[in-house]
């Protein structure tokens, strides 16, 4: 367990820990309490997708010319896996906290739908943004995230939705980590000839 969190933290810099894990999350919590989860969720979607740039951007690249340092250790892929798992848990727990805070402040069940919508939107889109490195990719992806979130919020509601989305959240998390492992392990095998031989 300790190693899982250590792996996650290794992907964070000291600046990120202050801003991304403390200051901004607290601010967003305040926003949720004042405006409700449904509204705050839109901001959280963008925040989560953009913040991921400093953590796992470029991790799903298939070419052999990246992250060699991790590959020179037998624990390399394991650390990535643990980091991603910790990331899923952190995100789920954080959104849970936000949802509860929203629910407590305005009593609407929609808080939980919102929280789960954020989770699903972000998780699916991160699988896209992590394929490329560069902050510029995360911006358009976060816009897409915003749109998807709004669509979800418009059409989905009710207790049944919450249950289904919770299940989906678990499935999407598992698939995300599995897919990441698939990409990382695949990068040990290069099918095309690259010039830097």
């Amino acid at each position: 367990m300790v190693r899982t969190w250590k792996s996650y933290l290794a992907f964070t810099s000291s600046g990120y820990r202050i801003l991304g894990l403390a200051v901004l999350p607290v601010l967003l919590l305040a926003l949720t309490v004042s405006q409700g989860m449904e509204a705050a969720g839109a901001v959280v979607v963008c925040f989560e997708i953009l913040a991921d740039f400093w953590l796992f951007s470029g991790i799903l690249k298939k070419e052999t010319g990246s992250m060699e340092y991790l590959k020179t250790s037998i624990y390399g892929t394991d650390i990535i896996k643990k980091g991603l798992v910790a990331d899923c848990i952190r995100r789920f727990v954080y959104l849970g906290i936000l949802s509860f805070a929203g629910y407590l402040s305005n009593g609407r069940l929609g808080s939980f739908t919102a929280g789960l919508s954020v989770y699903l939107t972000v998780m699916v889109l991160l699988n896209v943004s992590r394929h490329l490195s560069g902050f510029m990719i995360h911006l358009p992806v976060s816009y897409v995230g915003l749109i998807i979130y709004c669509i979800l919020m418009k059409f989905i509601s009710g207790t049944a939705a919450v249950v289904i989305m919770s299940l989906l959240a678990v499935i999407v998390s598992i698939v995300t980590v599995w897919y990441a492992m698939y990409c990382v392990k695949g990068s040990y095998y290069e099918k095309r000839y690259d010039e830097s031989v």
Partner: peptide, 26 residues
């Protein structure tokens, strides 16, 4: 085995302090 090479090697967003933390895990 200690390897150094010309590829990406590190993730570009890492800071040098993180390299040390990750090395301890690896």
């Amino acid at each position: 085995i200690g390897y150094t090479g010309p590829g990406g090697y590190y993730l570009p967003q890492w800071k040098i302090a993180q390299v040390a933390q990750i090395s301890e895990l690896l």
